[in-house]
Amino acid sequence: MNGMNIVSQKPDAMTDVPFPYCPGCSHGIIHRLVAEVLDELNITKKAIGITSAGCSVRNWRQFDCDMVMALHGRGPSVATGLKRARPEAVVFTYQGDGDMAAIGTGEIVHAASRCERITVIYVNNGVFGATGGQQAPTTLLGEVTTSYPSGRDPRTSGYPLKMAEMLSGVSPDSYIARVSVHDIKNILMAKKAIREAFLVQMEDRGFGLAEILATCPTNWRLDSVQCMERIEKEIIPHYPLGEFSSKRKEAHQC
């Protein structure tokens, strides 16, 4: 192998277990970004991840740190108990939109309002993936799902929940941002947001949440490329990217 250099490899914080996700699913990219941040912040040894219900329930096999499985929506509460019990640990949840924005709405709102020193990786693909494509709280208006085959109608099933905006309204000491992973530029920005969502916990500045717009090729019934295009054209216009709450170090001091 003379003359060859390693230019990219698996982050240390990731195990050798192959991803169980569908081709084109964003979980793989997001997992990698989280693992890269764990590596770069050198926190894998003190990190505890909390899985949620849904496709990502299996990610306890992917991250090479201590992991706890939580039931649907309860991740922020389990994380709260764990962080209070082990303040020296870095605790993060990894939750989908069905988990966090539907059944776990109460838990996330109050964890955010307590500005709990935890990090939430919130993956928003607008659909219940694992259970077969039912409507999520985040499903766009008019979007067809298996539970509303004629499309989401606000009169029968309400409007899409904008969690990042909503949570930033209740969580003064926090870093809350929405990012996307549909192209290289956005992937790099997403990593920055994930990193900051960890730092805000580690520096005891507050609660950290990165909402990441994600794909679900299987339930969207689109191929990978079409999925990325849909995020750009349909999803981002409804779910604008950006920071909604940012408790910087300086701000904390003054």
Binding site: R74, T80, A85, G106
Partner: peptide, 12 residues
């Protein structure tokens, strides 16, 4: 939520 916090603290 309370009992899930208990879960977290017990896990710790």
């Amino acid at each position: 939520s309370g009992i899930n916090m208990v879960f977290g603290a017990a896990a710790g």
